[in-house]
Design a protein around this nucleic acid. Structure first.
Length: 813
RNA sequence: GCGGAUGUGGUGAAAUUGGUAUACACGCCAGACUUAGGAUCUGGUGCCUCACGGCGUGAAGGUUCAAGUCCUUUCAUCCGCACCA
């Protein structure tokens, strides 16, 4: 048969679509598998990363479908976001038309890959219906106190003209455009993800079997739990007067309460309110004020790398236990966002405090004794016994931590606290192409959520997008509305939601995609969730995967779902590289999927991408290797002429076969066995493909037509998830598609009355023998000795080892 | 600095419980068929050596009859977080 991928692939894609073969059944008594790839942003064209992502999920989905499961394998579009607005500015297109045209184009491209998506469940997150339910969630969160509005110093990207969440700042720059972020104080809506910090951390344990360790660790670090002591430091009386009695002192957090007697100064962040007060009221000389202002003007990123600097604020606090005076400094290394923006400094036992103290000649008080301590060189941060610590002297420092905390609590000086690095999630974006925050500002009622029955609050179409300011803000008729509470004239909130809000629950919507009355049906969610296999890029390890986990828990507590975690198993695929670096337009190393499909067909593209490397690894594009993939499919097609048509598995009497025929059968069933292992957890598709290649090679080394027929019956079943079009073509021709169901492994093909034994001497391979399995150990050993006579000459055998069905080892001197 | 991962031929990569290291493929070499080959088929291909043989899984030790696999130390690369008190 001539292999003509284009005709074959079009034909089967049409059949699959016309006959709706990939729509899941509504029968909830069937065992299910929910296979999901991270949905794409409709940027215009698909790239190799998409091909890899969807080929992996498609293979898994098809495998489970062939194994008798009810499979949900949906696709949708993460269709709100900045690029649509940028395109609008550049090509004067409306973001909406640009987005939906891209969706149509990309849908066709994905279709040409032969992906077995459920087409009836497709939606875009910019669809009005999706917005409606999302706004409902947000209002419920507001009512439960999970969403709130506040003024805060935010990350601002001047290039994107919007605020960014902490998770969206990468090394001090915008995650999307890499512009350096600025700090601004402005109002915004925040989701209280910090309320779930502990649960998000705890539940990572339940994901240990299904998620890559790397991702779990990244999330753990991001949540950043630390335990310690929080206490107040009170100003000395002169100092209190200096700040006009406006402040009693300030609060600090430490993870080292054991070093409390080693405190020799304290430091405030340049943004601390006390520092602000001193500047505003000119309580420091101009020189110092200028220096502090300069400190504040330096970005976070630069502060992290520059030298430690500080200024004495001419204030003193009292040590909480012994009442001694301690100087208060402002220091550029103290972060306003963590632990109250103030630290107690123990230069003898903290390297950063040490450097600062050396620079400004501040005192060092040693309070942990150890032989390893070298305080003239650096701080000692290890364990030891307490000294210079009054009643705590002699305690082991770990023990002292608890004792000191107890002392503080008993004397109402402070308390044990847990701190997290995780901040609340700022979801306000000053952009047009997003889901509007459903709130109204009323002159008399203040901030009021929209009524549920008024949802969705949709975007106005008639906007002018210039890139300057939020078009919603300048849209007078859209903005003006009446207060949902009192009915008076009011102003609509013009911020839209972060697009990560949409991707935080789309997997739930797939469970009941077309309902106009609810986001999803509880029973549907119960049946389909959690996602059995979630596949996507590692770049979402924190962002999307943390938000989605949080959202699931929040919806649970709002009474919408009954699950704790959305994704049971996570597969993070590696990047597709060319010439050692990520494919990108700017580097000019892009291989366009549509060109590959046109030249070789989708099956070849799929085969190459699954064969070239295991999915978690990076994949280097290789033009000759894709030829190799093409060659294999051609070979598979050509050699199908050896097969006799069947509608069920041929019965073969194994014992009557020739040796090479037996071997071929063994290779075929090994491929089937490998397939079960791969989909069972390793997902090393490259190894199943290799096994199929071996099987085809072994089939070609024999002429038995029954073995050929059985071989193809099994191999096409194993290969269908990977190269579906050609498998359907061959299988419909040869087996009337009867082989696309679960095939049991026949054990007898692996059984042989002969066994191959490797003979090693002192662990080195010397000979091999084939012997009957009936033979006794003694006989085998003597036969082995005979064969190895030449090696054993003049030597004494000290030990004989025999491993059944594997090897013989002689230890000889 | 902290945390995670990975080191195997010219290349992408295989290798149950420790039991033939380099499967499968790419590349390369040779041959067959052919008007032709960037088609197809066959054979070869870790390194050193004419050979016998020896050496080989980043490096060094260790456990073991036997180590890519287990233990200790170490080096390199990649990724994430990063002044988190």
């Amino acid at each position: 048969m001539e292999y003509n991928p284009l005709t074959i692939e079009k034909k089967w894609q049409k059949t699959w679509s016309d006959e709706e073969l990939f729509e899941p059944s509504t029968d909830k008594s069937k065992p299910k598998k929910y296979i999901l790839s991270m949905f794409p942003y409709p940027s215009g064209k698909i790239h190799m990363g998409h091909v890899r992502n969807y080929t992996i999920s498609d293979a898994i989905a098809r495998h489970y479908r062939n194994s008798g499961f009810n499979v949900l394998h949906p696709i949708g579009w993460d269709s709100f976001g900045m690029p649509a607005e940028n395109a609008a500015i550049k090509h004067s297109l409306h973001p909406k038309s640009w987005t939906y045209e891209n969706i149509d184009y990309m849908r066709a491209e994905l279709n040409s890959l032969g992906l077995s998506f459920s087409k009836k469940r497709e939606f875009a997150t910019s669809d009005n219906l999706y917005t409606k339910f999302e706004q409902e969630f947000v209002i419920k969160m507001y009512e439960k106190g999970l969403l709130y509005k506040k003024n805060q110093i935010v990350n601002w990207c001047e290039n994107c003209h919007t605020v960014l969440a902490n998770e969206q700042v990468v090394e001090g720059c915008c995650w999307r455009c890499e512009n350096e972020i600025e700090h601004k104080n402005m109002p915004g809506f925040y989701i209280k993800i910090t309320k779930y910090a502990q649960e998000l951390l705890n539940n990572l344990k339940t994901l240990e079997d299904g998620w890559p360790k790397q991702v779990l660790t990244m999330q753990e670090n991001w949540i950043g739990r630390s335990e310690g002591l929080e206490f107040s430091l009170s100003f000395a009386s002169e100092s209190k007067e200096r700040v006009d009695n406006k402040f009693d002192g300030f609060t600090v957090f430490t993870t080292r309460p054991d070093t409390i007697y080693g405190v020799s100064y304290t430091a405030l962040a340049p943004e601390h309110e006390i520092v602000d007060y001193l500047i505003e009221h000119n309580l420091l000389n101009q020189h110092k004020i200028d220096a502090i202002k300069k400190m504040k003007s330096i970005s976070d990123r630069d502060r992290a790398t520059c030298e430690k600097e500080g200024i004495y604020l001419e204030l003193d606090v009292l040590h909480p236990i012994n009442g001694e005076k301690i100087e208060v400094w402002v220091a550029n290394f103290v972060l306003i966002g963590y632990g109250g923006g103030a630290v107690m400094a123990v230069p003898s036992h903290d390297q950063r405090d040490y450097e600062f103290a050396k620079k400004y000649r501040l005192p060092l008080i040693e309070v942990i004794y150890s032989e390893d301590s070298k305080l003239d060189e650096c701080a000692y941060t290890g364990d030891g016994l307490l000294i210079n610590s009054d009643t705590f002297n002699g305690l082991d420092n770990e023990e002292a931590k608890t004792k000191v905390i107890d002392y503080f609590q008993k004397n109402h000086l402070g308390k044990k606290v847990v701190n997290y690095k995780l901040r609340d999630w700022g979801i306000s974006r000053q952009r047009y192409w997003g889901s509007p925050l459903p709130f109204v500002h009323c002159p008399s009622c203040g901030l009021v959520p929209e009524k549920i029955e008024n949802l969705p609050i949709t975007l106005p179409f008639d906007v002018e997008i210039t890139g300057e300011g939020n078009p919603l803000d300048s849209h007078k008729s859209w903005k003006s509305c009446s207060c949902p509470k009192c009915g008076e004239d009011a102003i609509r909130e013009t911020d839209t939601m972060d697009t990560f809000v949409q991707s935080s629950w789309y997997f739930l919507r797939y469970c009941t995609p077309n309902s106009t009355t609810s986001a999803f049906d509880r029973e549907d969610v119960k049946y389909w969730m959690g996602v059995d296999h979630y596949i996507g890029g590692i770049e979402h390890a924190i962002l999307h995967l943390l938000y989605a986990r949080f959202f699931t828990k929040a919806l649970r507590d709002l009474g919408y779902v009954d699950i704790n975690e959305p994704f049971i198993n996570l597969l993070t695929q590696g990047m597709v590289l060319k010439d050692g670096s990520k494919m990108s337009k700017s580097k000019g190393n892009v291989v366009a999927p549509d060109e590959i499909i046109k030249k070789y067909g989708a099956d070849t593209a799929r085969l190459f991408i699954l064969f070239a490397a295991p999915p978690v690894k990076e994949l280097e594009w290789n033009d000759s290797a894709i030829e190799g993939a093409f060659k294999f499919i051609k070979k598979l097609t050509n050699r199908a002429s050896n097969v006799q048509k069947q509608t069920s598995l041929v019965k073969i009497s194994h014992d009557t076969l020739e040796k090479n025929e037996k071997l071929a059968r063994a290779k075929v069933y090994q491929a089937l066995k490998k397939s079960n292992e791969v989909y069972g957890g390793s997902f090393a598709f490259n190894t199943v493909i290799a096994a199929c290649m071996e099987a085809l090679n072994a089939l070609s080394d024999q002429k038995n037509i029954d073995v050929w027929s059985e071989g193809y019956f099994v191999l096409l079943n194993v290969l269908e998830p990977i190269i579906p079009h050609i498998c359907w073509e061959l299988s419909s021709e040869l087996f009337e598609l009867e082989n696309f169901k679960k095939i049991e492994i026949i054990k007898e093909v692996f059984e042989d009355d002969q066994m191959l034994l490797i003979i090693t001497i002192n662990g080195k391979k010397r000979e091999e023998i084939e012997v009957s399995k009936e033979l006794s150990k003694e006989d085998i050993l003597s036969q082995a000795k005979e064969v190895c006579e030449k090696w054993l000459e003049g030597k004494e055998i000290i030990k004989e080892i025999y491993v059944d069905n594997k090897l013989v080892n002689f230890v000889a001197k």
